[in-house]
Structures are given as structure tokens and as C-alpha cells.
Write a protein that binds this DNA or RNA. Structure first.
Lengths: 143, 143
DNA sequence: CCTCTTATTTATCAATTGATAACTAAATCA
DNA sequence: TGATTTAGTTATCAATTGATAAATAAGAGG
């Protein structure tokens, strides 16, 4: 097995993933928030509660910028901060009810596009897709 | 097969792909160009020659902004433009020799990280990975 | 030839993002 | 207790990016 050929496949594969991700998520972000803010909300949505520090690790931002964007999200009533009882320096951030609504709508619209995309797939296709994602997840994309 | 479960898998799968892509490509961009400029060079590298119009379709930019960034890349001697003989409005853009060197180095460093990542994979693992990518490419990520 | 469309450029401006320094407040440690 | 580290904030500034209007210049169609 030539690993260089595999690498080339990975390049075109990840280009495809990025393109499809783009198509599925296109325009789901409301105009009231910026792209970075939407990404932060996505991050919070899938792993809430999170601390600001965790956010800037995942998102590759600096603390001051993360803090600024979180403040803006807070002003827009999309997130809530609660400070840790034990260590009062820490904060736990989670979506507010408005934030939950916003992200639920976003995910619902992404899912609808996904279902459209796989509407013609047979049950065996779906099984194949599921198995293929499991394989890559465990053999190539696991930490 | 529950399609909603499959959708959830896709969400976490694409998050993994994006994270690994980030790790593989981290810091390969030289400081002399911006992120967007690097992305444009990547785009040109994999499908040269391209026209400015094709670039802004792929990259979701507006023509004026594409034009500006291409001019900057041209000033930095990373790309060359040649206009079509038949239709003189059109231009074909390709990497200059400096641009080729830059992108070759970038890809070499990405490939080295990839090889490191799969160094402990068995030949069967590699076959599995390859097959899984083929399946997803054809059943989920094809246009 | 005259209009219309296509491909690209130039210019300009606002918004977003990134980077840095300096700060507060709470925890840890010695 | 006092020094140091950790978590997060505030303020500021430059760079990047996005958006829009208006121009050029070549092809296409009647």
C-alpha cells in the first residue's frame, strides 16, 4: 500500500468534506451574529457547559478575543455564564434559551439538507456510510 | 437505520475531519501571506490553471476581493496570469516557480505529519482507511 | 453598428478579526 | 503571609476581510 497515494486520497477527501460541510451549513447563520460567534455557539452547543479557556483551545483564539466575543454573545442573550462555586475564577458557559432556539433551528436546517442529500440512498448504502465513518473515525481521526 | 443517528455521526465525524485537517495544516502557511491568500494558492495548486471567476465560485468570495488578493499574490511573485488568446477578457492563473516551491513545501510538510499520524497503522488498517474514504466519497460526498 | 452581457479591475469604506499590554481577582504554594 | 500562578477582562490598534459602486474592455447578438 503506497502511503503517498493514500495521502493524495486524503487531500481530495478532506476537500470534499469541507465542500459538503459548506453546502450543508450555508446561510444557517443568522445575520445578527458574526461567523466566529456562530462557530463559538456551535462549540458551546455540542459540549456545554464549557469554560472560556476550553473555547480558545478548541477555536484557536486568544483569551482576550474569546472574552470579547463571549461578551457580545452575552449581550445578545444567546449564552449565560455561571461561575464555579469552588473556584470562582472559572466560568461555565452554556446556551441561553434564545441560544438553544437559535442553534436548534440551525441544526434542524442542516439536518434537513443532509436528509435531502441521502434521500436516494438504499438501506445498504446507509449501513456502508455508517461503517465507513466509524472506521475513519477510529483509525484515522481519533486523537 | 435511523437517519437522525446517522446525521449525528456525520456532525461528530466532520468535526473530527476539521480538527485533524487543522492539525495537519497548522503553521504550514508562511507569514508572508494571509490565510485567505494561502487558501487561494491551495486552490490554484490543485486545479491550475484557473480563472479568477472559478476561484471566487470555489472560495465564496466576491470578484473585487478575489481580484485584489490575486494582485497581491502576483506582486509577491507567487502566481502568474496569462490571458486567453481567444477571449481576451479571460485569464488563466497558475503558480509561478516561487509559488510552486512554496506549495510543494507546504504539502510536503502536511504529508510528513500525515505519515507520522498513520505510522502505527497495519497494512490492513490502511486498506480499510482507503476503502472507507472511497465509500464516503462516492456515497456521501460526491457532487 | 449599437446594445447587452461577461470578465475583470479600481477605489473606497465599514466590519471583523488578531495581537498585545496592562489589569483584576481568586487560588496555590512555600 | 507574601509571592506566584491561573482565569478571565478591558482597552487599544493594526491588519484582514467583506461589501458596494463604478469603471474598463472585450465578446455576443440583433
Amino acid at each position: 500500500m503506497d502511503k503517498s497515494i493514500l495521502f493524495n486520497k486524503l487531500v481530495s477527501f478532506s476537500a470534499s468534506v469541507h465542500r459538503v460541510t459548506y453546502e450543508l451549513t450555508k446561510d444557517v447563520k443568522p445575520d445578527s451574529i458574526t461567523h466566529v460567534q456562530y462557530k463559538i455557539l456551535e462549540n458551546i452547543a455540542v459540549s456545554q457547559p464549557v469554560t472560556p479557556s476550553e473555547i480558545n483551545d478548541c477555536m484557536q483564539m486568544s483569551m482576550p478575543n474569546t472574552s470579547r466575543e463571549l461578551s457580545k454573545l452575552s449581550e445578545k442573550n444567546l449564552i449565560e455564564k455561571i461561575s464555579d462555586d469552588k473556584d470562582k475564577r472559572k466560568q461555565y458557559i452554556h446556551l441561553s434559551s434564545d441560544g438553544e432556539i437559535l442553534m436548534n433551528e440551525a441544526f434542524a436546517s442542516i439536518e434537513a439538507r443532509f436528509l435531502e442529500r441521502i434521500q436516494n440512498a438504499t438501506p445498504e448504502d446507509l449501513k456502508d456510510i455508517e461503517r465507513a465513518m466509524d472506521i475513519l473515525q477510529s483509525k484515522l481521526f481519533s486523537p
